[in-house]
């Protein structure tokens, strides 16, 4: 089992979205600080032809460094890793990244469930899962896994999402989990609210570590 490596309460943030989520990311990522204390891993269902351009655009607009994930890469804080078109993105138990061209999961490749599920296995409670606008129900199962492992679950408010089906499906499933006493939706927020939450989690982690950026272990009280 790997050592807990991230500063504060988390090791990584995973993001998933489909139709209507590009706009949210364009609003969200450019407003996160460049010294964001964790890596962000993202699966967005995109038409393959759009994808390269989108990553470049986000990279230009953000203080974070935004790129396509590579197989066996070790993710670094302040970096955003997108699943390449037509490949699943996963986190391995040692928290490195891996890609796979396996069959589609919930009609999708990359699939949000595959990322969320593998990251929940690798990070346990030390994971933030964020599910954004979209049609379909990819991400619901993954977000439930994150919740069961004690991670933090964040859903874009379906009432404000351009395509509410995906966040709504996750919200319903997590609410059902909460009734069983094994997790639940921690935050249901507007896109602005998600941004503020991530910034405040980052500040909390950096504060605990006794300064911005560098984060020695054992900073938790």
């Amino acid at each position: 089992m790997k050592a807990l490596s991230g500063p504060g309460r988390f090791d990584a943030v995973v993001l998933g979205g489909s139709a209507g989520s590009l706009k949210v990311l364009l609003e969200l990522l450019p407003r996160l600080p460049g010294d964001f204390p964790w890596p962000l891993l993202a699966v967005i269902h995109l038409h393959p032809r759009q994808e390269g351009r989108f990553v470049t655009l986000l990279d230009q607009r953000s203080l974070l460094s935004v790129k396509e994930a590579e197989d066996k890469e070790t993710p670094a804080p302040g970096h955003v890793y997108f699943a390449p078109a037509d490949y699943h993105l996963q986190m391995e138990p040692d928290q490195t990244l891996s890609l796979s061209a396996e069959e589609r999961v919930r009609f999708s490749r990359p699939s949000i469930d595959v990322l969320f599920d593998s990251a929940a296995q690798a990070c346990r409670s030390r994971l933030v899962g964020v599910l954004l606008s979209g049609a379909g129900n990819d991400g619901t199962e993954g977000l439930c896994r994150i919740s069961e492992q004690g991670g933090l679950t964040v859903i874009q408010d379906p009432a404000q999402a351009e395509h509410p089906a995906m966040p709504q499906a996750a919200l319903d499933a997590l609410t059902a989990l909460a009734a069983l006493g094994v997790g639940g939706p921690d935050h249901v927020l507007s896109s602005g609210g998600i941004m503020e939450l991530l910034v405040s989690l980052a500040e909390e982690a950096c504060g605990q570590a006794g300064g911005r950026g560098a984060a020695p272990e054992g900073g938790r009280s």
Binding site: H88, P93, S98, E102, S118, Q121
Partner: peptide, 9 residues
């Protein structure tokens, strides 16, 4: 084999 994928299989 890489664990995430073989675990899923």
């Amino acid at each position: 084999y890489a664990q995430a994928s073989i675990g899923r299989r």
